[in-house]
Design a protein around this nucleic acid. Structure first.
Lengths: 174, 174
DNA sequence: CGGTAATTTCTGTATATTCAGAAATATGGA
DNA sequence: TCCATATTTCTGAATATACAGAAATTACCG
């Protein structure tokens, strides 16, 4: 089991991706593991990932679990090897679609529900000003409209979505 | 200077917004200050914000500065009052547009540049596999296409954007 | 110009989060 | 069943974040 080393370029990408992740509220190691698997042509096992990234085995385990939970990394079996191997989705469009959708499901949707409840409760709440009630309603409505739009985009076949974005949506500007 | 207290509903919203912020890599206090100002009909001064949110004065100062840097909170002067007062943009669409655009400018654009450099360097780098080079290029290209699309959306007049989203973009599904 | 109040920046400390390694558990084959 | 290896859970240490108060700066008014 030889230690496959990274080129300077690969290393830079992985480190940058990790930084990026942190800014978006994603654990650095999770982002790095993902970056590594994204670049890697063949599936890697947990041990290899530790060695390449120089992070603790436990972190890799947790990160892989997280990435699998998002559906962007999958286990693959290898003949004659008991250990699990992991590979990432390699289609960037599909990756983006899944990541955005997962974050929406986990973070936006619950917020939307809370806001809807608050907005409707605020209407008849003596302690809450009509003005606050209005703003809550506007925010709730905004989330509603924009998530509905997102869902629609999300349901498009990948190729169609890609074409739509490339075309520029509403009609291209000069 | 009396301590304006929050209704239960307002408090819940502000706390939730703070949580939400953290998940997206935004300082909790920053998000809470924003939530408070978003709800508030009249502009508040820093002192009031401290009292209402129970956070340190210095944190409020830093948070306000940050929010002003994003362009979603503005100072307003009040007759006969030396202290600065602050108010948030109240148009949710405009808010979303500005926030997304700022994050793009600060986080995506630099990443895109790095990736473009890495991708082109990878092509002629002996240490980097052709496969890696391909993936870097795909990622760089994806960021390019999607940010170009975003910029185009962003340049639409607010009303047109709103209408476009509400309509459903690519054509509505059954 | 001075004095006063508001505001921001700085600094040490407290708190919370994240991490790596160790120990415990689970899994698969002989 | 036993052994080897993979995986997860636990725990102290490292790191990052939030805080309060002090010091410095700025703005305002007489």
């Amino acid at each position: 089991m030889e230690n496959k080393t990274l080129s300077q370029i690969e290393e830079t990408f992985i480190l940058h991706w990790g930084q990026m992740g942190v800014q978006w509220g994603i654990n650095r190691t999770v982002a790095q593991v993902h970056a590594l698997l994204y670049l890697s042509e063949e599936a890697l096992n947990a041990e290899q990932i530790c060695e390449i990234l120089n992070v603790a085995r436990s972190n890799v385990s947790t990160s892989l679990k997280e990435l699998q939970g998002w559906g962007i990394v999958k286990k693959v079996a290898r003949m004659g090897d008991k250990r699990d191997h992991f590979e990432s989705l390699h289609d960037v469009w599909e990756l983006a679609r899944i990541i955005l959708n997962e974050r929406k499901k986990r973070e936006i949707d619950p917020t939307r529900e809370v806001l809807q409840q608050l907005a409707s409760a605020a209407e008849s709440d003596a302690d809450t000003s009509a003005d606050t009630a209005k703003r809550l309603k506007e925010m709730a409505n905004f989330l509603d409209v924009s998530t509905t739009w997102f869902d629609r985009m999300n349901r498009m076949p990948p190729a169609a979505l890609k074409a739509f974005i490339k075309l520029g949506g509403p009609g291209k500007s000069p």
